[in-house]
Design a protein around this nucleic acid. Structure first.
Lengths: 235, 235
DNA sequence: GCAAAAGTGTTCATCGTACACCCATGC
DNA sequence: GCATGGGTGTACGATGAACACTTTTGC
């Protein structure tokens, strides 16, 4: 036996929701789709799964192709499978969400795709069911970041506490008391204060911090409270 | 255009991790696989996705086939995709986890599959990568149940607080102070006390409770604390 | 009457929240 | 010298944890 009988076969794809933070707004990276159907429309970066790779490998390959980066935070989100989601042919697509330091990303690497960062509040229309994928990714990010320190993946390796606070405030569309915020994040033991300051945001300057990678990996799976009242959040 | 060119096509399947609770132990339902390869071995209930259905529909169809039940709690878990996970032919399988009231399930419905409940601690060897699927499902259940009231899906519609506590203690392999436990669960406002008692577990009997469905659905997505110290749990 | 499980309250420590002032610097 | 953003401490209330005794009833 070298085949299962009487079963229908289809294509498998991955689509990547790539989040970045520019200091102001949470954004995602979109490309202009390069082939029919919907050629030229804004789309998530994606591609078909090859015969010799699994989904994780496929999404890593595709992300490297677009951003030039590897080793970024990448998590399988959900598999989308409506029979008619792709009008050409049945294609089941697994969405991944990725978090990258927007500063590491350089546009020229993938000029052929015409990639652009879009603020989440001002997304263009997307093809197929990608709107739904983005919605789910947003929810997942908000959910997960309320409990785990994944937001650091969106920041450079040196960052300031006001930067971090901006990020949380922007993701949760809220404001947080800065005294309580800094107490909370410092209490986690995840941050190591540096000697230098970032003078770009103010005259006085804000101290840089770096992640304590030891503690970061050790505590990644446990619950942390980075935002007030996570118990009452609704997602 | 009615096909994408030069892409490899494969099979898509779903596999279901079905959890139940017998009052003592958390269990999962396994069947004897009915076809080659690995025919006769213990396996998760699964099947191929048909051309006209999505993954949710496929898993519901398959669960109904095995248990006779529909409308049970069902959640997409993860898609498993190693190229050689099925030795016959490339098959990408999406795992679902299901929670059912073990008492509603009647074995005879699906005698042809020879289904059996196995305590999680004493699982037989499973085929392919199903061991990994079960591990992931266990982690997800523990994770999710620490924050959301999904464990009720494993109990009959009328249950007692000691039963509920047993369930939590068994899933987290721990013991909980009963005074604090009942305070916590009653404080959620999710339970409605009934007049009758369950006399099966003790001479005095324990009051039955039912879910307040209104509050249950309203609070499902928010965080609740059912177990002590969820902040310090590691999954 | 006794064994076995159900049910209930208080105290204390910890954590989370609200809140306001001084500091450093570039201009 | 002043405007701008950075940095810090305290007091109070809420929440979570530890802990022991009484009740009911079948045998």
């Amino acid at each position: 036996m070298n085949r299962y009988y009487k079963q229908s076969r289809g294509l498998n794809a991955v689509d990547c929701i790539i989040f970045g933070f520019d200091g102001e707004n949470l954004k995602i990276l979109l490309i202009k789709r390069g082939f029919e159907p919907e050629k030229g429309k804004w789309s998530l970066m994606g591609g078909f799964v090859q015969g010799n790779e699994n989904l994780d490998q496929a999404s890593n390959r595709i992300l490297k192709q677009l951003t030039g980066l590897d080793g970024m935070y990448l998590e399988q989100l959900h598999t989308f499978s409506d029979p008619d989601r792709d009008p050409i042919e049945r294609t089941i697509s697994t969405a991944y969400f990725a978090l990258i330091d927007l500063n590491k990303y350089e546009t020229q690497i993938s000029a052929e795709y015409h990639p652009e960062w879009f603020a989440l509040k001002r997304l263009p229309k997307l093809i197929f069911d990608q709107q739904e994928m983005v919605e789910m990714a947003k929810r997942r990010l908000r959910y997960k970041a309320a409990l785990h320190p994944i937001m650091f993946e969106l920041l450079p390796s040196r960052f300031t506490i006001p930067q971090l606070q901006n990020l949380y405030e922007s993701v949760y569309n809220t404001t947080i008391d800065k005294r309580n915020f800094s107490k909370r994040v410092l209490a986690t033991g995840l941050l190591i204060k540096q000697d230098e300051k970032d003078k770009s945001g103010s005259k006085r300057g804000a101290f840089y911090y770096q992640l304590n990678m030891q503690n970061y990996y050790a505590n990644f799976q446990s619950f942390l409270n980075f935002i007030p009242n996570p118990t009452h959040l609704i997602f």
